[in-house]
Design a protein around this nucleic acid. Structure first.
Length: 734
DNA sequence: GCTATTGTGTTCGTG
DNA sequence: ACACAATAGC
C-alpha cells in the first residue's frame, strides 16, 4: 500500500510552509528550519515525495546528514512511507558517502582501495612519527596542537603545498612541513584520516572530472541537512555535485551553528542565496516541540547575538510551566537537586526516567551526576566521553583485524605487535622503522628483514610474523565475528587478560565480549548485502571507524540520558536539565576569547534549551571542583538574558535542606550583580582606552560598584582624573 | 625489555 | 583528581 502512495498521503499533516519545502523540488532551495519546527518530518516527506509522487528513481537521490543516527532515523521513516520502493536511496553521512565513493575511485589519487581510516589516536601517533622523521622535538612542537592545525587545514580544504605557500613565519612553515610529512606517512600506510575522507573526495572530483560526472549523473537531487555545520570542504563537495542540475536543497538553522571550532563555516548557509541567486527560501518558524515559556526563554537568549539573521519562532503551546532555575551551593548540591527533581517527577508526576535528560558543557561534568544517580539506583546512560571503539583493548583487537586486511597498516601493526606483550619492544621497533624509511618498504617488510638476522628477538619476531601470515589466510572470507573470535584466541589477547584476573582485566574482557556481540549483530544485518566485493570484515571496520557514541545511543524508556549539549543537538526530551551555567563553564572560558566565541556558546545554550518539550530546568553552582581544586563561579550571563517573567527561581537553604522557591522574579540580587560584574569586568577593565563624549579620550584606572551603580575612575588626557557613572557616561572604546 | 615511579597536562565540543 | 606518558631502575 505505501508503495503507491499518492501525493496527498505524502503531504498529509504538513503545515503550509512545510508543504512548500516538500513540493519545491526543482532548483536550489534553502530551508531555514528553526528548532523544533518539524525539520526531520519535512526531510522525510521530501524524499518520499520525490520518489513516490515525482517518480524520481531512488538511486537518483542523495541525502546527507552529520550523524549515522540522524541518517538511520531518516532512512527508516522514508522506508515506512515508501516501502520497498525506497531501495537504492542514499541517506547517509558525509563521511560514509565519501568512504563509499573513495572505495570505488580512490585509485586515481594513488591510494589503494583497501585504505584504512585512522582515528584521532592514530593521527596523533602519525604526527609524532612525522616529527621524529623531521628531527623535531615534540616538546617544542606539541603533537596535539599540530594535529589540530592539520585538521583545520583539511577542513578548510588546504593541501600541504598550499599550507607551505601561505606560511609567513617560521612556525607556520614548520607546521606545513609536518603536515606534508604526516600526509606522506598516511600514504605509506595506505591510510586516510577523517579530514581526508572529505578532502580527498573533493580532490578526486576536481582532478578527475569524469569521475565527478559519473556521480553527477547518478544523483539528480541533493539534500543536505544541518547545512549550518558544514565546513568549507563539505561546501565544495556539495557544490561540485550540484554543479549542473542545481537541484540542491539545504536545510539548516544559523542559530544552531555550534561547530565553528571544527571548521564549520556559517558563510555556507548565510551566503546560499548569493551562491544561488535563483534560490527559493522557506522559513519554518512554527515550533511544535516546546511550551511558550521555554521558547521565550531560549529565543531571548539567542536574540543577544549580533551576527544573526532575525527569526521569530512561535508556538501554539501557550500553556506550560515556567523555566526553573536553581542556584546551587556547589556541584554536589547541583547534582543532588537535579536527581531529586527527577525522582520527584517520576514518583510524583508519573514521568519516566527516559523522559529526562541532563546536558552539560563538558564531558568532565558528568561525574557528580553519575554518583548521585547511582546513589538512588536511578538507571542512566552517559553518551560520549571515552568512546567504546577507542578503548585500548578494543583498539588492540580491531588493530589485528585491520592489519590482517591491510598488511601496510603500520599503525595497526604496532598495536598488534604489542598486544599482548611479546617481548618485542621499542628498540626493535625503532630499528624496523629506520629500515623501512631508508629502504622505502612497509614496516612489516622491515620486520621480516630483522627476523632473518637471528638472535633471541629475531626468534620472537619470527613467531609473531608467522602468526600474522597464518591468521591472514585463516581469516579470509570469514564473517567479522568469527574472524574476531579467532584473532582474540590465536593472538593470545584473551589468555593475557584471563591470566591477569584483576577486576580491571575482567572489565576489559567484558568490553571484548561486547565488541564480539557487536560484530555478530553486524554480520546479521549485513548478511544479505553480499553484492559488495569488499569483504565483510572490511565493511565492519569501515562501520566501526565511522560510528560515534551517539549513534549507538537509543532512547530507552527507563534510563536518564546524560550528554554534552553538543551531542544533544537534534534530540528532544520532555524534561531537560541544562547544568553548570556559570561564567567560564558555560560559556566556556576557552571559547570566550572573542565575540564570535561567545556567540557560538550562546547558540549552544539555545540548542540546549530548545531540546526541552515541557520542563526546562537550569542550574548553576557557586562553587565547583575543577582540575581537582575548588573554583568559584559566577552565574552565566545567559541566565540573565532570560526574561524574569518566564523563570521560577529556587535556592538552597530550606529546613531539611530542601530548595526554596523564590517566586517568579526574585532571582537573588547578588546574583544579578555578579552577572553585571562578569559582563562588565571583561569589557571595562583597568588599562582600557575609552572615549567620553565631553571629556575626550582617557584610560580606565579602576572600576567600582555593580549594575546601575557601577562607577569608573578614568584619567582623561585633557581634564585629568574623573569618576563617572557607567550608566550615563556613554563611553565607547577609543 | 619490562615495571614502578614520577611528572605532566587535562577538560571545549565531534566524525 | 586523574589518566597517561616519560623516565629510571632493574
Amino acid at each position: 500500500m505505501p508503495a503507491d502512495a499518492r501525493f496527498e498521503d505524502l503531504l498529509a499533516g504538513l503545515d503550509p510552509e512545510q508543504r512548500r519545502a516538500v513540493e519545491t523540488t526543482e532548483g536550489p532551495l534553502l530551508v531555514l528550519a528553526g528548532a523544533g519546527s518539524g525539520k526531520t518530518r519535512v526531510l522525510v516527506h521530501r524524499l518520499a515525495y520525490l520518489v513516490g509522487a515525482c517518480g524520481i528513481p531512488p538511486e537518483g537521490l542523495l541525502a546527507v546528514t552529520f550523524t549515522n543516527k540522524a541518517a538511520g532515523e531518516m532512512r527508516e521513516r522514508v522506508e515506512k512511507l515508501l516501502g520497498p520502493s525506497a531501495d537504492g536511496l542514499w541517506v547517509t553521512t558525509f563521511h560514509s558517502a565519501c568512504v563509499r565513493i573513495l572505495r570505488r575511485d580512490i585509485g586515481h589519487l594513488g591510494w589503494s582501495r583497501g585504505f584504512v581510516i585512522y582515528d584521532e589516536a592514530d593521527g596523533l601517533a602519525t604526527v609524532k612519527e612525522a616529527l621524529r622523521r623531521l628531527d623535531l622535538d615534540p616538546k617544542i612542537h606539541e603533537p596535539r596542537r599540530l594535529r589540530w592545525r592539520i585538521d583545520q587545514w583539511k577542513n578548510a580544504g588546504v593541501l600541504p603545498a598550499a599550507a607551505a605557500a601561505a606560511a609567513h613565519d617560521h612556525e607556520a612553515e614548520l607546521a606545513a612541513e609536518v603536515y606534508a610529512g604526516y600526509q606522506r606517512l598516511l600514504a605509506e600506510s595506505n591510510a586516510l584520516d577523517f579530514g581526508d575522507l572529505i578532502l580527498q573526495t573533493v580532490e578526486l572530483f576536481e582532478r578527475f572530472p569524469e569521475v565527478l560526472a559519473h556521480y553527477r549523473r547518478r544523483w539528480q537531487y541533493l539534500l543536505v541537512d544541518e547545512y549550518q555545520d558544514t565546513n568549507r570542504v563539505q561546501y565544495r563537495l556539495v557544490n561540485q555535485l550540484a554543479g549542473e542540475h542545481r537541484n540542491l536543497c539545504v536545510v539548516g538553522d544559523p542559530d544552531q551553528s555550534i561547530y565553528a571550532w571544527r571548521g564549520a563555516d556559517l558563510r555556507n548557509i548565510l551566503d546560499f542565496e548569493r551562491d544561488y541567486p535563483d534560490a527559493q527560501v522557506v522559513k519554518l518558524e512554527r515550533n511544535y516541540r516546546s511550551t511558550q515559556p521555554i521558547l521565550d526563554g531560549a529565543s531571548a537568549v539567542v536574540a543577544n547575538n549580533r551576527a544573526r539573521k532575525e527569526k521569530r519562532m512561535f508556538t501554539d503551546r501557550a500553556e506550560g510551566e515556567a523555566i526553573r532555575l536553581y542556584e546551587a551551593l556547589d556541584d554536589r548540591d547541583e547534582a543532588q537537586f537535579v536527581v531529586r527533581s527527577i525522582l520527584q517527577a517520576v514518583r510524583g508526576e508519573g514521568r519516566s526516567f527516559g523522559e529526562c535528560a541532563i546536558f552539560y558543557r563538558t564531558n568532565a561534568q558528568s561525574r557528580p551526576f553519575e554518583e548521585e544517580l547511582l546513589k538512588y539506583d536511578v538507571p542512566y546512560v552517559v553518551v560520549g566521553g571515552v568512546r567504546f571503539y577507542e578503548r585500548a583493548e578494543v583498539k588492540d583487537a580491531l588493530s589485528w583485524l585491520r592489519l590482517l586486511s591491510n598488511l601496510a597498516d603500520g599503525m595497526a601493526l604496532r598495536r598488534a605487535l604489542a598486544s599482548p606483550p611479546r617481548g618485542i619492544g621499542k628498540a626493535t621497533l625503532e630499528r624496523a622503522e629506520e629500515l623501512a624509511a631508508s629502504r622505502g618498504t612497509t614496516l612489516l617488510e622491515a620486520l621480516r628483514a630483522l627476523a632473518g638476522e637471528g638472535g633471541r628477538t629475531a626468534a620472537k619476531l619470527g613467531a609473531f610474523l608467522s602468526l600474522v601470515d597464518e591468521l591472514a589466510v585463516e581469516v579470509r572470507g570469514l564473517l567479522p565475528a568469527d574472524a574476531l573470535a579467532r584473532v582474540l584466541d590465536r593472538s593470545g589477547i584473551l589468555a593475557h587478560f584471563e591470566r591477569e584476573g584483576t577486576p580491571e582485566a575482567e572489565a576489559r574482557l567484558e568490553n571484548l565480549r561486547e565488541l564480539l556481540a557487536g560484530a555478530e549483530d553486524f554480520g546479521a544485518v549485513n548478511a544479505g548485502s553480499g553484492a559488495d566485493e569488499r569483504s565483510a570484515i572490511e565493511l565492519f571496520l569501515d562501520q566501526v571507524a565511522l560510528v560515534s557514541d551517539l549513534d549507538a545511543w537509543e532512547r530507552r524508556a527507563e534510563r536518564v540520558s546524560l550528554m554534552t549539549v553538543h551531542s544533544a543537538k537534534g534530540l528532544e526530551f520532555p524534561l531537560v536539565f541544562v547544568v553548570g551555567l556559570e561564567e567560564g563553564v558555560f560559556p566556556h572560558s576557552a571559547a570566550s576569547h572573542d565575540a564570535a566565541g561567545i556567540e557560538e556558546e550562546r547558540r549552544l545554550c539555545y540548542v540546549g534549551m530548545t531540546r526541552a518539550m515541557e520542563r526546562l530546568v537550569l542550574t548553576c553552582a557557586a562553587e565547583r571542583r575543577r582540575y581537582g581544586s575548588r573554583s568559584y563561579g559566577v552565574p552565566s550571563r545567559f541566565l540573565r538574558e532570560i526574561p524574569p517573567e518566564v523563570v521560577m527561581g529556587f535556592v538552597p537553604g530550606g529546613e531539611d535542606g530542601r530548595p526554596v522557591a523564590r517566586g517568579r522574579e526574585s532571582r537573588s540580587l547578588d546574583y544579578a550583580f555578579s552577572q553585571d560584574e562578569a559582563a562588565e569586568s571583561s569589557t571595562l577593565r583597568p588599562g582600557l582606552r575609552v572615549r567620553h563624549p565631553i571629556f575626550g579620550e582617557g584610560t580606565v584606572l579602576e572600576a567600582r560598584g555593580l549594575g546601575d551603580g557601577r562607577k569608573l575612575e578614568i584619567r582623561f588626557d585633557r581634564v585629568g582624573v574623573k569618576t563617572v557613572l557607567l550608566r550615563f557616561a556613554n563611553l565607547e572604546p577609543a
